[in-house]
Design a protein around this nucleic acid. Structure first.
Lengths: 364, 364
DNA sequence: CGTTAGCACTCTCGGCCTTAGAGTGCTAAA
DNA sequence: TTTAGCACTCTAAGGCCGAGAGTGCTAACG
């Protein structure tokens, strides 16, 4: 978009004013931003042109102008100045990262809560694994003859388990055999690659006639499915309700409903590279429910082959610059803590929970 | 409350009509309920008396009447007829219970989702353990010299785990010793009873100089705290927004905010005995945020020493009878499935996940 | 004495009009 | 090219009015 400098400044002024007040911005208001350098009449002319370029819109004749989605896009691409985080923000974020939200053990929840608190918008957090989630190692714990526990160490360094009850008794030696077969056959496989044929083969390998292999395999699949599902989280959806664009309950309800669907979350925009902030504005979003909202997201490095993603969903009238700054500061902090923790281990500092690998998606 | 039969019938009619329409009910409407048995003038007289008794209220002269909190209370205690569940409802509930919500492994989530879906109100689900949560059994899994897993079988039959990284190497034999000391010292203890003194004692018992005992004990405490926290869940908070009494966004926001606080959830009303439905109406609720909402809850038997609780939060204008019927049908179903599963074990039916003990709060 | 028809009265809600104010676009002058 | 001036447009808020709903009271009735 080729705009002369003055148009750019006017566009910037309109957007920044509108973001602040949520009211259409008139030529006089813009003029006052420039002191007495330009008259409101000139600005009116410029604004009329900006409108015909599709960057501004008028709710009706004789209201001021409001940025269009395209206007925001130009602003984000070309005009937005880097927002400098305040000291308070930096302190708030880094101390929250270091201590984790009280009473919460989950990294995704922690990160999501923090993002949502620091932006006043609903946040989403996801983690993903290059090559998908699989099990790195099985252990079977004998509890009593009718009970055992499957413990699975996943390739994302989290641990999951299943308690299994049996109708026919078993014994420790059998479980040892079971676990070595499982370690041989099922490790490294994504959930969809654990096929019935594979299970039957293992059944034969163990010499199982009681069905225990099938059951254990079933739990293994469940466990992998849960591990995949546990990879996304939305926090602070209520926050939507404090923004004027969602004062219409029905609109808010639809968006919150949308955000509570895990499958949809997985489809939210995600940036290609670590550190780069991806912004999709209004109709740039594919989902209908997001047509008049914006989404910002950033990846972070969760150590090893793991990648994480945090983002927010809010009205198109967002302070993109400020949100971007906070989002990327948080992402950087997470990358740092999570990569650092690869070298880290027993730590006397009990509060640094959020950085410990034991915190990563080990739920269930 | 001593009311003659006709007053009772009128009160009932007003409430049932109001529940249906959310509009103040006039004498004529009530009269039509009785056919031409009583004239609207008579009803007017009766309604005026019901108002002076505090059972009905008038939003303004010349609107109809609306039930007061006291009116609902009398209705719930004395007038409410038992709602007969439709066949469809029974089928919907029992099949949902049997199969679990798709993609969700957690019992609390499942139950909460179901309740919220079947009532259109936000639901809360909790589970609790007579005597508190403690660990029944420890296992330590050696992964490599610098890594091991603590697996804890809790007294509520769920399993939790922690992945621990070490700075100094260890070996399987040491972990065996560690786990026997932990099994001897820390089993059966609630989180607050694992004291520094106890930890030091174990340290001496194992002969540990590396701090590994302290770290493992720290993780054990964390694990218990998480187990306690994982015992309550709210589902379907968005549902509030579809009810006209929460069309005021600010009101809805406050209530949803309130419901997203775990500590507050733990304080929501809970009935004394299994099967009994506890209903608190409007100002009967202690929390300010619930002053114009009602809460209904029922306990179910989760097998063994475990108790569960499901409930809903909604406007005082609720169909108490219908919600009660659905709630208690769900509670009965849960009791049945969970108690049954004590006898149950390996089951060929992969879909009966919700009834399997492995599903209970094993999210750590 | 309880019940009922009749009626005046009250209050809300929606529609309509008016006015104030904000902001525009156009014109003409600098 | 910029700007002052001005007529014009549109909304939002307030006021007014009539329709409608529902009441409470009174007086008549069985």
């Amino acid at each position: 978009m080729i705009l002369n400098d003055r148009k750019k400044e006017i566009l910037r002024a309109v957007i920044e004013q509108y973001v602040k007040t949520a009211e259409p911005v008139g030529s006089k208001t813009v003029a006052s931003v420039f002191g007495s350098a330009i008259s409101s009449a000139t600005i009116r002319n410029e604004m009329a042109e900006l409108e015909s370029l599709g960057l501004l819109e008028q709710p009706h004749t004789s209201a001021g102008r409001v940025p269009s989605a395209l206007g925001y896009r130009v602003y984000v691409n070309e005009l937005m100045s880097e927002h400098k985080l305040s000291n308070d923000d930096e302190i708030a974020i880094s101390s929250a990262l270091r201590s984790g939200a009280p009473g919460q053990g989950h990294l995704l929840d922690n990160a999501g809560d923090l993002v949502s608190r620091m932006t006043t918008y609903p946040a989403y957090a996801m983690s993903s694994m290059a090559g998908g989630i699989s099990i790195a190692r099985f252990d079977m714990i004998f509890v009593d003859s009718f009970t055992f526990i499957i413990v699975a160490l996943l390739n994302n360094d989290s641990v999951k388990n299943k308690l299994v009850h049996l109708t026919l008794p078993t014994e420790p030696a059998f479980l040892t055999k079971l676990s070595s077969v499982f370690n041989a056959s099922f490790t490294g496989l994504a959930e969809e690659r654990i096929t019935p044929a594979l299970i039957t083969a293992s059944e034969r390998a163990v010499g199982d006639t009681t069905g225990i292999v099938a059951v254990a395999a079933g739990f293994t699949i469940e466990l992998l499915i849960e591990a995949k599902a546990g990879q996304s989280r939305v926090s602070g959806a209520v926050n939507l309700l404090s923004h004027p664009e969602y004062r219409d309950v029905e609109k808010a309800r639809r968006l919150i409903k949308y955000l509570s669907d895990d499958n949809e979350i997985a489809r939210l925009p995600s940036p290609d590279a670590t550190g780069e902030i991806k912004i999709t504005i209004g109709p740039e979003n594919l989902a209908d429910e997001l047509r008049d909202s914006s989404v910002m997201a950033v990846r972070y490095d969760a150590g090893g082959d793991m990648q994480g993603l945090i983002g927010v969903v809010g009205p198109t009238r967002m302070d993109y610059s400020k949100v971007a700054a906070r989002l990327s500061y948080i992402a950087q902090g997470l990358s740092w803590l999570l990569s650092a923790s690869e070298l880290q281990s027993i730590s006397a500092d009990k509060n640094s929970g959020i950085g410990d690998e034991d915190e990563i998606g080990k739920d269930d």
